[in-house]
Every structure is written in C-alpha cells, then in structure tokens.
Design a protein around this nucleic acid. Sequence first.
DNA 1: GTCTATAAGAAGATAGAC
DNA 2: GTCTATCTTCTTATAGAC
Lengths: 207, 207
Amino acid sequence: MNTKKRILDEALTLFAQKGYGNVYVGQIAEAVGIKAPSLYKHYKSKQDIFNAILDEMKDRYDRQTAALNMNGSDAYTDADIFGAVSEDGLVEMGIGLFSYFLHDEYVCRFRKMLTLEQFHNSELSRLYTKQYADEPLNYQATIFSILCRGEVLKKEDADIMALHFFAPIYMLLTICDRHPERETESLKMLERHIRQFSRIYKETTRG
Amino acid sequence: MNTKKRILDEALTLFAQKGYGNVYVGQIAEAVGIKAPSLYKHYKSKQDIFNAILDEMKDRYDRQTAALNMNGSDAYTDADIFGAVSEDGLVEMGIGLFSYFLHDEYVCRFRKMLTLEQFHNSELSRLYTKQYADEPLNYQATIFSILCRGEVLKKEDADIMALHFFAPIYMLLTICDRHPERETESLKMLERHIRQFSRIYKETTRG
DNA sequence: GTCTATAAGAAGATAGAC
DNA sequence: GTCTATCTTCTTATAGAC
C-alpha cells in the first residue's frame, strides 16, 4: 500500500480509538513510520486527512449499496425473497448483516470514528443516521412489506417489523464495539432474537 | 448555583457537544463567566472536572435505580405489573422511559458525553453498557418474565422480549440525540412500535 | 518524499497580587 | 475566589536541505 493510503488507514485506526481531537499528527506519522512533516507532502492539514477518510467511506458505502440493489429490491423476484424467509433464512440474513458490520475492517473502524464524531456537525450526524438507521430500516421494511403481502408473515406494519428486526441487531453491535469479548454471547442472543422474531411474526395458518 | 457546581454544569454541556479532547479549560471558564486560572481554585485539573462529573452521574444513577427498586421488582406485586400491561400501559411505560432518557437535562447531556468517550477506556465502556443496555434490558426482562408466567403474554423468552421492547426505544433515542427535530416523528414511531409489540406478544386466548 | 530544524500559536497549569 | 502575568509543554504547520 502506498504512503498516501497508509496515512488514511492509520489515521482512521487512531481516530476510531481516540477521536479526532485526541489524535496528534505526530501519532499518525509514527504509526505510518515517517515523521510528522512528511505527512504534509500528502495532505495539507490534519482536517484534510479526516475529510479524505470521509470521502473514501462515502464512496465505499455508495458502491456497496449500489451492488446490493443490483440483486436487491429492483432485481429480487418475490420468489427470491420468499425463499429467504424461512427461519433459517432470516437467521442467515441477520447474522450476515451483523458480521459484516462487525468484522469488515474498514466499516468497523469507520463506524467507531463516526460514533465519536457524530455530534460534531450536521453532516456527520446525518451520515451516521443514514448509514446505521434510516437506510437499513428502509431496506428491511421493503423486504418485509413484500412478505406481508404474501401469506408468509402477519399483516403488520412493515416499518415496525424492520425496527423489531434491526434495532436489536444494532444494539448488539454497539455492545460488541465496546466489548469485543462479548461477541460470542451476542451472536447467541442474535440467533435467539431472530428465531423468536420469526415465531412471533409468522402467519398462523388457520385450519 | 455555586461556582463549583456551575463549572461541572457548563463543562458537561461542552463535553457533551464536542467531546473532552475538543474542549479547552478556557471555554469552560468563559461559559461559567470567570477566567481559566480561577477554575483551578475549584478543581486541580481538567481531568479532575471530568472525574467529578462522572462521580456525580454515578451517584444520581444509583439513587435513581434504588428509587425504582423501592417500588420496583421487590415491592411490585404481580397485580401491579399485570395492571400495567394493557396496551396503553405498555405505551405509557415506553414513552415514559423514552422521555426520561431524552428530556432529563442532566441524563441527556451525560449520555451524549458518554457516547463520545465510550471507547476512551474500559471504565467508560462498561458504564455505558451498564446504563444503556444491560440494566434496562434486565429490568424489562424481569417484568416480562412475570407477565409470561401469567396468561397475559405468550410464553416466549423474556430476555428477547426485553430486547424487542427496548432496542427500538434505544435506537429512536440515539436518532433524537443527533436530530432533535425528529422527536415528534420518533414518538409516533415509538407508539406504533409498542402497540405492534403488544399485539404480537399478546397471548391469544383460545375459545 | 523524507528528513531536521524551527516557527507560531494554543493549551494546561502555576504564581502571586488583590 | 478572582484576576493578570507567565511558564512550560504540546501541537500544527512550514522552510529548506538531501
């Protein structure tokens, strides 16, 4: 990896641990293995490094959600979704979502950084809410609304179903961000959550 | 309010907005209406101010949960709890919890501060998880487990019911912390959440 | 592109007068 | 208890050699 990218990488690691204000350019330089003044050949200021991280993350996020929509809401046939809605299918979807958020190196550090900077200005607030609340909830709600139209799930409010499905995942994720040693426990909780969600929302076929 | 308390108050406000590392003692002093050196007659360092805030919050939290338990799990009769489990009772409990977390001046600022400092050290991580995850979940689970023993709610895992009840409240709360203008919308969402929770978990009386 | 040296200023904290 | 003046250290950033 070239130096310019390595600077972003190490800076993100440090920002995610300590927060922007508690990280000094000298620390970033040390992590990269160069001296502080050399950083300024690559970025014009500390803020410039932060902005570059932000830009790269927004790019990644857009590419990722675009990829999701290619075989997502547009291209998904109802049959695809119905196939995925067995209890085991839901468990897989939930654990996949959870594991991606928790283990993708970049996504994970970026979420922690954004957590620490979320009140700093409205752009960061909006970005956080978009990525970790509104868009996941809308995505899930779309899927559940399709399932409600069929005979698979009870005809309840799909927005709330999405909240019931995703909010526990989000909460367990924040716990693991603070306590990585609780991942195993959280995965068990996650599976119990989804199986119960599935039982509770499954259409009771009468007769 | 005396100066010593006013320092804590203004410092907490600033820490909640910007995070500890981005607040300078001069800003705290200015907010209080004195000059920076005067602060040092009251607290021996900036860190000392932070620690004092932490100590006061832990005291408040302990007193508050102690008060809850006085007419809480120990003293609650089953009848009390059963009475509160009508759909409207649950809505009231949820909105009460939400509004308390969101509107209590001190609780709200402290939560934001802790949000920004949660990765700084393990004491802060543990405190956050205790106050905003483990203890609310345990408290709710206790109540739901009693309700499951009766014929009020379906006999499902009470820990997961607590997660289904509380995680959405927590998530809406974090949204409102970032976007106070979304409070009305979030309150509506909260009510829809609890009414659906109630429908979904209500024991279907056969016959 | 990296280094050493250094400027320029900010930030935490102290001394001592009032 | 509050102030002004000051100290020290830290921190960002630049200059200029290699």
